[in-house]
């Protein structure tokens, strides 16, 4: 089963809408609350990343019997050095974004601890693709 959601860059007021929608779906499927929480926290981070950095993006959620995979594809500046971006505390966020409480450089490490598999690909100047997989 697939679901697709669209994200606008810069739209912080709606950041989190996809996470909420996915959470509702997982609850209806009767997925363990702990796994729901992990998935939603990771997705929320990834969703906010698009809002903070990209121009726009789409989120494709695929559900199988015991697996959820979420692909977040954005059009944006991309990430120059993915390894560095994965480090705790590393951030390129502007002051404006930091003032809103985002961009503390915890995003990717937080996503890593909350997922069974996290794959990040990026082409600078074109965009970033993040794939999150959790099993239940």
């Amino acid at each position: 089963m697939d679901f697709e959601y669209q994200i606008e860059g810069g739209d912080f007021t709606n950041a989190g809408a996809t996470s909420s929608a996915v959470k509702k779906i997982l609850k209806q499927l009767g997925v363990n609350p702990e796994i729901i929480k992990r998935t939603v926290v990771a997705l929320y981070e990834a969703e906010v990343n698009i809002v903070a950095h990209a121009y726009r993006g789409s989120i494709i959620v695929n559900l199988e019997d015991h697996k959820i995979s979420i692909k977040l594809i954005d059009e944006g500046p991309g990430i120059e050095d993915i390894e560095k971006a994965m480090e705790q505390g590393y951030s390129t966020a502007s002051q404006k974004v930091r003032e809103m409480g985002f961009g503390a450089g915890m995003g990717f490490s937080n996503m890593k601890t909350n997922t069974d598999s996290l794959i990040v690909n990026s082409s600078p100047g074109i965009g970033t693709t993040v794939e999150i997989i959790n099993y239940f």
């Binding site: 089963m1 499927l29 009767g30």
Partner: peptide, 20 residues
């Protein structure tokens, strides 16, 4: 203890079919 009301079925595959 939790007692989720939202669940469509005890069996995840059946729940998935119902959700679809």
């Amino acid at each position: 203890l939790p007692r989720s009301m939202d669940k469509l079925d005890d069996d995840i595959s059946v729940a998935m079919r119902k959700m679809k």
